[in-house]
Design a protein around this nucleic acid. Structure first.
Lengths: 300, 300
DNA sequence: ACCGCTTACGAAAATCGTAACTATG
DNA sequence: CATAGTTACGATTTTCGTAAGCGGT
């Protein structure tokens, strides 16, 4: 029994398909098939029922699956536990949403710089879609963005924060207390971020669920720019409620309820699934600890 | 990183010596050394401080050690969980002490036969020393006996029961309430089991600790025979208190206190350390559950 | 010089991918 | 006939043991 065999078995069982599992592990299907066959023979048990089209784990396979998962987990732990306590060095390129950049990024950077003086951080601010693509390509070590919203098999995501969003507009455009309905979208232009944005994606899902038709005359890739446009009375938009509070308090924007309300957005830590580098797992811990979308650079 | 490497590292760290670890794993020192070197290079960390004579794990090694242990544990679990639920087949030869044979063996056999009709059980009754030797040689799959009392590196033992022992004699030989002291050993012959017995070994340890000189005129390899001799008033001996109660209650024997009292004896499940067969691990569970030295065939 | 580990090297075995093959829906 | 998995086979890589090397005591 080897770790490779267990890994092959695990992913084949998990994905229900040898070919996909093989791709996942960067080996040919033949290799994967053989690894599983070896495992089966070393255990004297068939692990898959191959009669159908999908590869279904047998009873024995089911039992092994849980143990195999723990093994692989432990393998990653072993890899990372060794370098523990030493400070990281090298370069870490990561993606971050604009909102993140304006809220928790400085604290995060400060903390990491303090504990890992030898590590060069290269934050890259962009929309969720772009970030995901870059992580998948390996340009970025990880990203923190809204998601996951495009199912990509090779990506692992881990939710790190929920953020409440509200519709907002300038009080010169819309009365305080107005409830956003389909009607509003006919009267007011909606300003959204570009398509690649996680925010926009969430909005589209929401609008589609209500069967709403929306005129979107303005699309922009910067949250702060949209905020400016909204304050100027160009249209209505939706923002992280907490983050915009200063504007609301100064009377530049009013918060509007909608029926149904916008769902909270989930921000996730996004990395390649097969990236077990110590760098990633350790930095991830800092992200989990430091992410705080209510903290705000503007008032720090 | 492979399981072989982790195993090599684990035993080298645990035993503090590459050569012994290599023997333990049935490979040459060169192979073991290389496996560890590979592990070190795959981790980019030295795992041992080789400066001294003993191989001391480094800081990183220490951390890995715990994880490695869990991994190996999990590997054995993986091997065994797969066949779980199916009934065992084949032959199981195991050793058992006379006391065990007269107490819990029947229940144990009944239970195993019920759940594993395809398994042939071959209990072999002998003294602890012989049993241990046979287990080590591989003649027996396991044994349950007093011990471990000879430190053998390749044996794994797991305590399964404590049994209280008392000095006993015929009331025709010795007054009720007599306290056993050095003096008694000058007046009364002590009947013990042969040297290979765990009981005898425990007695010798005890006697040596008190600095006692003992005349042992009678040595026998059967507990029941010794009981008969003791009832006949030939000498004094020590017995599992609970097991002899029927004799005591019928007035054939009296229980005597000694100063200090005999220690409880620990019975262990004994198997080869490198024997990870499913048979052994599963049968072990039955032993642990069924061992009960107070149950008694004579009255079942 | 001995002990404990590493290195060199060659034989044996494994691993892996290409490509052909088989079975299922 | 297309999809999903297995088998055959040869090239490459890995693994392992023997034996020599090497650095402390």
């Amino acid at each position: 029994m080897t770790l490779k065999q267990l890994e092959a078995f695990y992913w084949a069982a998990k994905l229900g398909n040898f070919a996909i599992a093989a791709a996942r592990l960067h080996v040919t299907q033949s290799t994967l098939s053989k690894r599983i066959a070896e495992l089966e023979s070393s255990m004297n048990h068939l692990l898959f029922d191959r009669s159908g089209k999908r590869a279904i784990p047998t009873e024995a396979g089911q039992r092994l699956l849980a143990v195999a998962h723990d093994m692989l987990d432990l393998r990653d732990r072993a890899r990372n536990t060794v370098g523990e306590g030493e400070s990281l060095r090298g370069v870490c390129q990561f993606g971050i949403s604009e909102l993140g950049a304006l809220t928790w990024l400085p604290k995060f950077v400060a903390r990491v710089r303090l504990e890992h003086p030898g590590l060069v951080l290269r934050p890259y601010v962009d929309l969720a879609g772009q970030l995901a693509k870059r992580v998948a390509r390996g340009d970025l070590d990880f990203a923190v963005a809204v998601g996951p919203w495009k199912e990509a098999a090779e990506m692992a995501s881990h939710a790190v924060a929920r953020v409440r969003f509200s519709w907002m507009a300038s009080p010169t455009r819309i009365g305080v207390g107005t409830v956003i309905t389909q009607e509003c979208f006919e009267q007011h232009p909606v300003i959204t971020m570009t398509e690649d944005s996680g925010l926009t994606h969430a909005f589209e899902v929401w609008a589609a669920a209500q069967g709403m038709q929306v005129q979107r005359i303005l699309v922009c890739n910067s949250l702060m720019a949209i905020a400016g446009l909204t304050v100027a009375g160009i249209g209505i938009s939706y923002f992280p409620a907490e983050f915009m509070r200063p504007w609301v308090e100064r009377g530049l924007l009013v918060e509007l309820r909608s029926e149904p309300p916008l769902p909270d957005l989930e921000y996730s830590f996004l990395a390649r699934q097969d990236d077990a580098r110590e760098l990633v797992s350790r930095i991830k811990r800092y992200v989990v600890e430091e992410v705080d979308f209510s903290w705000d650079t503007r008032f720090a």
